[in-house]
Measured scan of single mutants.
Amino acid sequence: DYYQTLGLARGASDEEIKRAYRRQALRYHPDKNKEPGAEEKFKEIAEAYDVLSDPRKREIFD
Rank of each mutant, 00 (worst) to 15 (best):
41 K>P: 01
53 S>A: 10
1 D>F: 02
56 R>A: 12
31 D>W: 13
7 G>K: 11
17 I>A: 02
39 E>N: 14
52 L>P: 01
4 Q>F: 15
11 G>S: 10
35 E>F: 10
25 A>E: 10
5 T>D: 11
22 R>D: 09
46 A>H: 10
53 S>R: 07
35 E>T: 12
39 E>V: 14
47 E>Y: 11
47 E>L: 13
31 D>Y: 10
38 A>P: 03
41 K>G: 04
23 R>M: 10
42 F>K: 03
36 P>A: 13
7 G>R: 06
55 P>W: 07
55 P>N: 05
7 G>S: 09
49 Y>F: 15
20 A>G: 08
9 A>M: 10
46 A>W: 05
53 S>M: 09
40 E>F: 11
39 E>L: 15
30 P>W: 03
44 E>W: 03
51 V>W: 08
5 T>V: 11
44 E>C: 07
13 S>W: 00
17 I>V: 10
7 G>M: 08
18 K>S: 11
21 Y>H: 04
4 Q>M: 12
23 R>L: 15
58 R>G: 04
5 T>F: 04
27 R>C: 14
32 K>I: 03
37 G>P: 06
50 D>M: 10
42 F>W: 13
57 K>N: 05
38 A>F: 10
45 I>P: 02
59 E>L: 05
22 R>Q: 15
31 D>E: 15
58 R>H: 03
23 R>V: 14
29 H>Q: 12
2 Y>G: 01
13 S>N: 12
55 P>V: 08
44 E>I: 08
32 K>S: 03
32 K>G: 06
44 E>P: 07
60 I>F: 07
5 T>I: 14
36 P>E: 15
18 K>I: 15
6 L>T: 01
12 A>H: 00
32 K>F: 02
4 Q>S: 05
32 K>N: 01
28 Y>D: 06
26 L>S: 10
12 A>M: 02
30 P>T: 15
28 Y>F: 04
27 R>Q: 15
11 G>I: 07
11 G>Q: 06
35 E>A: 05
4 Q>L: 12
53 S>I: 08
35 E>D: 05
15 E>N: 12
12 A>V: 10
29 H>G: 13
36 P>Q: 14
50 D>Y: 04
34 K>W: 00
36 P>Y: 07
31 D>R: 06
60 I>L: 11
44 E>Q: 09
38 A>C: 10
20 A>D: 00
58 R>E: 04
61 F>S: 11
31 D>N: 13
60 I>S: 15
16 E>I: 02
40 E>Y: 15
16 E>P: 00
3 Y>R: 00
33 N>L: 14
47 E>R: 13
20 A>M: 05
21 Y>A: 01
17 I>F: 01
42 F>P: 03
52 L>V: 04
34 K>N: 02
25 A>M: 12
29 H>C: 11
11 G>T: 12
28 Y>R: 04
5 T>Q: 09
56 R>M: 06
60 I>E: 15
31 D>Q: 15
9 A>K: 13
55 P>Y: 07
45 I>W: 00
2 Y>K: 03
4 Q>G: 05
50 D>C: 11
12 A>D: 03
59 E>C: 04
2 Y>M: 08
24 Q>K: 13
56 R>W: 08
1 D>G: 04
32 K>M: 02
17 I>H: 00
34 K>T: 07
45 I>Y: 04
2 Y>Q: 05
6 L>A: 00
56 R>N: 12
21 Y>Q: 02
24 Q>V: 11
47 E>F: 02
23 R>K: 15
35 E>K: 10
62 D>G: 08
21 Y>K: 04
58 R>I: 02
14 D>Y: 11
25 A>G: 11
55 P>L: 09
45 I>F: 03
5 T>R: 04
51 V>I: 11
23 R>W: 13
29 H>M: 14
46 A>E: 15
39 E>C: 12
40 E>P: 08
20 A>H: 05
38 A>K: 08
62 D>E: 09
16 E>C: 05
3 Y>F: 09
51 V>E: 10
51 V>D: 03
36 P>N: 14
50 D>H: 06
27 R>F: 13
42 F>C: 04
46 A>S: 13
8 L>S: 04
39 E>I: 11
21 Y>F: 12
7 G>D: 10
10 R>F: 09
8 L>D: 01
45 I>M: 11
30 P>F: 07
22 R>S: 14
47 E>W: 04
22 R>K: 13
39 E>A: 13
39 E>H: 13
20 A>R: 03
39 E>D: 15
18 K>W: 09
42 F>S: 09
12 A>I: 01
43 K>T: 03
6 L>I: 02
59 E>R: 04
27 R>N: 14
49 Y>I: 06
9 A>D: 04
24 Q>E: 07
32 K>Q: 07
16 E>W: 00
30 P>I: 11
1 D>E: 08
24 Q>R: 07
8 L>M: 03
55 P>C: 06
22 R>V: 14
4 Q>H: 06
26 L>T: 10
47 E>Q: 08
60 I>W: 06
50 D>T: 14
1 D>R: 09
24 Q>F: 10
31 D>T: 14
48 A>P: 03
48 A>R: 00
41 K>A: 10
46 A>P: 01
60 I>A: 15
